[in-house]
Design a protein around this nucleic acid. Structure first.
Ligand SMILES: [Mn+2]
Ligand SMILES: [Mn+2]
Ligand SMILES: [Zn+2]
Ligand SMILES: [Zn+2]
Lengths: 124, 124
DNA sequence: CAATTTATTGCGATTGTATTGCAATAGTAT
DNA sequence: ATACTATTGCAATACAATCGCAATAAATTG
């Protein structure tokens, strides 16, 4: 299952790189100049996630948001960090704050999903 | 808008109290002996949340889970805690682990939603 | 207890997000 | 240029959650 380079992938990656934030399929589609089908965008996003290029966040609005893995690539293991969703400007940013918790070894943690919601520093 | 006591409310509360976990509307409906409409269950759950009796968690599966506020009632302010969703037994438990983070005062945090996913100690 | 008020419920319709099947399209390698 | 198959578009589908509205029933009043 080799990956191919397509205009769609580039466009999606471009929007995410420029925004520097976590975006929903809807927001990405709006920020793209060319027309791309909704289902295709989701497939592209999910493929990027599989490849470890993007990470997915689910906010308490129940929607999925995708963001570039900045530290995931070059270095070791991906770092679990908090996210902030501003209900005013409706954006989600990856906070440079690590998620810490000490859980019994008996548990096997596979995913971490932490989102703070409120008003961001720009909108406050 | 005074609240009234109804069999539905009691049944829902009963299931949640017995399970001691965070449950979805679907799971609650399955564990209830009487027949209650889906929309009604959601309305009851949301009302309980408004009244501070329950708290809602959104997992990365995009679903809403509701759990009793144990420490929310008697004491001071509600404590933000982590949640663990086991993909094996398909349950969510409120972990006795507080969520800590230091965020610039410029941000206004209104909600905290933290969920760890994997295999719980029982299923591991 | 009977009458009144209105919170609550059931039901169907509806919204909104995300996924899937399938045929058509277009990268990529030979 | 040809063959292979990853990728895409489109429509259908799945699913969680909410909403409008009429019917029901809890609580209050006389
Ligand atoms: Mn992030
Ligand atoms: Mn909890
Ligand atoms: Zn903002
Ligand atoms: Zn389990």
């Amino acid at each position: 299952m080799k990956r191919r380079n397509t205009p769609t992938k580039e466009a999606v990656m471009d929007v995410l790189a420029k925004s520097g934030k976590a975006m929903s399929q809807d927001a990405i589609e709006q920020h793209i100049d060319i027309t791309i089908n909704r289902a295709t965008i989701y497939r592209v996003l999910n493929r990027f996630c599989e490849d470890g290029i993007l990470h997915k966040v689910v906010a308490e609005d129940g929607k999925q948001y995708f963001a570039l893995c900045k530290k995931c690539d070059g270095h070791k293991k991906p770092v679990h960090h908090f996210h902030f969703r501003c209900t005013t400007c409706d954006t989600i940013e990856c906070l440079p704050i690590e998620v810490h918790f000490s859980l019994s070894e008996a548990y096997i943690v596979e995913h971490v999903n932490c989102v703070l919601t409120g008003t961001c520093k720009t909108c406050a």
